[in-house]
């Protein structure tokens, strides 16, 4: 464990807490894409298959349980909770996210570290996570006024993977093992997808104006 990875995990945890806070306290999911939340639930479900069979550390197991629990409960809130679901604008959240899953699965079957079920699932979860934010970014461009919590949520979600890239660089220079290039590339693509959001987020913060993404 290094400071970059810890910062990444804490940023990721914080993004999830900000979202849960928004949904649980003000009982609203306005501006949040259910499709992205569903994709993230699938990302964690396919990545943490070995949560009970492959013990890494208490921290690792607890964080996996938090990410699994929070992502599925957010999906539950947005689908089932009688108040929260009313604030979900489904006619705006129209990204065909299932169409994202098939190319990721096919790519995982072709490009992976080891052709085993678990390894293919893990690779699938990496590719899927790289594109999981797309429905949310599309929704942000459609909903004009982005509220602060939603903007912070997306910002933190993007920032965590950027910290992971620093972690991979650090590990490359300090450990005899190396992190596989599949992880590097999908992490890089994921972070680059946030580039324009980061730009507008920084502009809105610098000029102290409401965050707006060009349509």
């Amino acid at each position: 464990m290094n400071i970059f990875r810890l910062a990444g995990d804490m940023t990721h945890l914080f993004s999830v807490l900000v979202l849960l806070l928004k949904i649980h306290t003000i009982k609203s999911c306005a501006g949040i894409s259910l499709k992205t939340q569903e994709l993230y639930a699938i990302v964690f479900a396919t990545r943490y298959l070995d949560i009970f069979t492959n013990y890494i550390s208490l921290y690792n197991t607890i964080m996996k349980l938090i990410f699994l629990g929070s992502s599925f409960s957010i999906v539950w809130y947005m689908r089932r909770h009688k108040i929260v679901r009313r604030s979900y604008d489904k006619d705006q959240d129209t990204f065909r996210h299932y169409f994202l899953m098939l190319p990721c699965l096919i790519l995982a079957l072709i490009i992976n570290e080891k052709f085993t079920f678990r390894e293919v699932m893990w690779t699938f979860s990496l590719y899927l996570e790289a594109v999981a934010i797309l429905p949310q970014l599309v929704l942000l461009q459609r909903t004009r006024n982005i509220d602060n919590l939603t903007g912070q949520y997306v910002f933190l979600l993007g920032a965590y993977r950027a910290f992971y890239i620093l972690n991979w660089i650090y590990r490359y220079f300090t450990e005899e093992h190396f992190v596989h290039w599949i992880t590097w590339i999908s992490g890089l693509v994921q972070t680059l997808l946030y580039a324009d959001f980061f730009y507008y987020y920084f502009q809105s913060w610098k000029n102290n104006v409401k965050l707006e993404l060009p349509a």
Binding site: I56, N60, W122, H177, H180
Partner: peptide, 10 residues
């Protein structure tokens, strides 16, 4: 450098 034994990251 050799391959990591397992996925130790989240």
């Amino acid at each position: 450098k050799e391959q990591p034994l397992e996925h130790d990251e989240l």
